[in-house]
Design a protein around this nucleic acid. Structure first.
Lengths: 150, 150
DNA sequence: TATTGTTATACTCTATAACTATA
DNA sequence: TATAGTTATAGAGTATAACAATA
């Protein structure tokens, strides 16, 4: 494993390095914990988004997740094949697909959130509860600020 | 821009989402600030690593950065073409290339670190100095813990 | 026989352009 | 004419396999 001494203090303290390490480790943990549910982290984020905003068109979903609409097609193809979401032509505008969670999608979502909680706790096990809250709060403020005035 | 309300609180508070947002924003800022120096964030990390460990073989460098040795070939090709690093056959073992920073590489490195500092400050402008230190310290502890017992 | 650097190749992720069906 | 979804295609980024030089 890479230890701080191996790469030097200047690199190991750069924010981009620290964020990337944390994200890669968290993605590995998500792979591990979500695998039994048959979905990945990306798909979990789509399910979470749909739960908050359904029913919604594919394009709106893509924009909110900041992915290309062609990427969303493939993502929804996968989720639909697993029976977790359903596409239906919008009666009011037959060009649009209305996307919604299925019952199975809702059940998988709740299990997946618990699995993701586990992955997060595992990543942050070196921190106590108040420090975990603090980290999340600091990151949330950074994200909120970026949204405000780019 | 994506606001928290658009994606719902459940997604916007997931750690993976927060880390990814911060990293993407920071990568954008690095692109912007490093562009005048002719290098990218990836290349800065190689320069920082070499400064800490030079001279070192390509393979050792690749392992420390956790990239494939074939990827390192392309990375060093780029840095060498810009005159920032030099490859030389190791007299003791002619299979190896010894990689070292050139004088130009050292100068560019220092400028790039200052540019990266700026990018980091811009990303974290919503936080005060003690909060920035705190965020970095929390992430460093998470990284150190992951290295310890995977 | 094993290792270092290299090249060729394939795979993933994502975006661009073009097609269709609707409006 | 413009838009939503789709498909085909191409571009980064990265990994695997094979090869030449050296040990």
């Amino acid at each position: 494993m890479t230890r701080e001494a191996d790469i030097g203090p200047r690199l190991s303290r750069r924010l981009a390095y620290l964020l990337k390490r944390a994200l890669i480790d968290l993605e590995d943990l998500h792979r591990e914990h979500l695998d039994p549910l048959g979905i990945n982290g990306r798909e979990l984020s789509v399910l979470l988004l749909l739960q908050a905003r359904e029913p919604e068109s594919q394009q709106q979903t893509a924009e909110r997740l900041q992915v290309d609409r062609t990427t969303m097609v493939a993502l929804l193809d996968g989720l639909e094949a697993k029976g977790l979401v359903a596409r239906e032509a919008d009666p009011a505008d037959r060009r649009r697909n209305v996307v919604a969670l299925t019952d199975a999608g809702r059940r998988t979502l709740e299990k997946a959130v618990r699995a993701s909680d586990k992955a997060e706790r595992r990543l942050l096990r070196a921190l106590d509860e108040s420090e975990r809250t603090q980290l999340r709060a600091l990151l949330a403020r950074v994200a909120a600020d970026e949204h405000e005035s780019p």
